[in-house]
């Protein structure tokens, strides 16, 4: 019998799930941010804590200013979420093995019950996409009625981040398996991609060359953010055109 710990993991492993984000289409409308919060039971933290940078968006739209009035320009809106790195900076620094790489789904996992809240992972994440529960942000009644039962409700002292809607991945796989088939491309998608009115976010299997996301990723001049750090991110960005 093979024990789980005997399985060797190669650092350069290709991913399984990935995204293509077209910044030229992104209008910064925040629909993805809201959809993500509703799907993943993300707490709102209020004005004071969000002022301290403690808001827990798993996805945020970045935008920067260039130039000065009247030649001022906003850089293309950039949805920034966990890049599900193939070789993630957050993983080796966790003393509790709470942020580990999923061998099966090739995702960076955050195992809430293991997390002890050292925040090393967030400090080591070059994309700054991890959010920490600084308090128990309670939802007053009856707001908890909207909580998604497929996603753990996190408590104080736990790190959290984008999971690529792993609950949807599992559900789709479960349905496909019960019907004796493979999950087909586009059968399901993440909450952000499903909401996006401009279709700027496309999600799918990057290890299937014929999937929509792979086809899009191959064309043109897509970039992967901070690829030079050797993180092997799974999200390809297209800036203009």
């Amino acid at each position: 019998m093979i024990r789980p710990e005997e399985i060797k993991m190669s650092e350069e492993e290709t991913g399984k799930w990935g995204m293509v984000i077209n910044q030229d289409l992104c209008t910064g409308c925040q629909a993805c941010v809201a959809a993500c919060a509703m799907e993943n039971n993300i707490s709102f933290v209020g004005e004071v804590d969000s002022g301290y940078g403690r808001s827990m968006h798993w996805i945020r739209i970045e935008r920067f200013w260039e130039g000065e009035y009247p030649e001022v320009k906003m850089t293309p809106q950039q949805p920034m979420l966990c890049q599900q790195c193939g070789h993630a900076n957050c993983e080796p620094v966790c003393p509790a093995y709470a942020t580990v790489h999923s061998q099966a789904e090739k995702l960076n996992l955050q195992v809430y019950n293991r997390c002890v809240g050292t925040r090393y992972c967030a400090n080591n994440c070059p994309y700054q996409v991890r959010a920490f529960n600084w308090r128990d942000y309670k939802r007053p009644e009856p707001l908890p009625n909207q909580l998604n039962p497929d996603v753990t409700v996190r408590r104080m002292g736990v790190m959290e981040k984008c999971t690529f809607c792993i609950q949807r991945i599992h559900k789709a796989q479960d349905v496909a398996k019960s019907e004796g088939r493979e999950v087909y491309d586009g059968e399901f998608t993440t909450a952000c991609a499903q909401a996006c009115p401009a279709n700027a976010i496309v999600f799918g299997r990057v290890d299937h060359p014929e999937s929509l996301v792979s086809q899009l990723a191959r064309k043109g001049h897509g970039i992967k953010h901070l690829e030079e750090l050797g993180t092997y991110p799974q999200i390809t960005y297209f800036k203009e055109g």
């Binding site: 019998m1 399985i7 789904e105 999971t163 792993i166 599992h170």
Partner: peptide, 22 residues
């Protein structure tokens, strides 16, 4: 682990943290 037996692919799936924790 018992269920997976010698099937390495199944073992990976069944011992993955993300199979149960998310």
């Amino acid at each position: 682990v018992e269920t997976a037996g010698e099937d390495q692919e199944l073992l990976i799936k069944l011992s993955d943290c993300g199979t149960c924790h998310y």
